[in-house]
């Protein structure tokens, strides 16, 4: 049972190399990830190392971890893009989920979630359903969390008043 799983993992790693198709040559490192590794899923993650510079377009269906520099366009419609602490992206990004420890300059569209961690930087417009911004993160741009819903739906969703939702919680009596 365990062996089978390991076999499938190694098979996935091989297929991963073809996921990215940059204009220049890429050296995808399968070595150790930095401390961030523990916080991201280990399976099927392509790792672009610190010394790698890519100019062009990246598309794929595997999760991608970028520690290097990317300029251009990244499209991972069903996968997670993680920008490591040393990652520096100047790109239009489209993914299922985007986690930012490093720096992004460009617009980000994520169908599921954008998560900007402490010291993560995004300079561009974000379109997503869920957004998490940690204390210490830096962001400049616009946030649109209703980009998939059309105007009529938005009217329906818009609450009359959500005052009760945000009122302070009532403390328990001793």
């Amino acid at each position: 049972m365990w062996k089978r799983e390991e076999e499938s993992r190694s098979a996935a790693k091989i297929s991963v190399a073809s996921a990215a198709k940059p204009a220049s040559s890429i050296a995808t490192s399968t070595g150790h990830l930095s401390g961030i590794e523990s916080r991201i899923p280990r399976n099927n993650v392509v790792h672009i190392g610190k010394s790698v510079v890519i100019k062009g377009e990246i598309t794929g269906s595997e999760d991608l971890m970028i520690e290097g520099k990317v300029e251009g366009k990244i499209s991972l419609p069903q996968s997670t893009l993680t920008v490591g602490a040393d990652g520096n992206l100047n790109a239009e990004i489209s993914a299922n989920m985007v986690i930012v420890f490093g720096e992004i300059k460009g617009n980000v569209t994520a169908s599921e979630k954008v998560d900007i961690r402490d010291r993560g930087t995004v300079d561009g417009d974000i379109k997503t359903k869920n957004l998490v911004i940690a204390d210490g993160a830096h962001f400049r741009g616009s946030i649109d969390m209703h980009w998939q819903t059309n105007t009529s739906e938005k009217q329906k969703v818009k609450p009359e008043s959500k005052r009760s939702v945000v009122q302070p919680s009532i403390p328990r009596l001793p």
């Binding site: 962001f139 400049r140 741009g141 616009s142 946030i143 649109d144 969390m145 209703h146 609450p159 945000v166």
Partner: peptide, 13 residues
């Protein structure tokens, strides 16, 4: 603001 207004937010620090 998303809960209260369901609006687009532009952050210009």
């Amino acid at each position: 603001f998303d809960q209260e207004l369901s609006c687009k937010i532009i952050v210009e620090d």
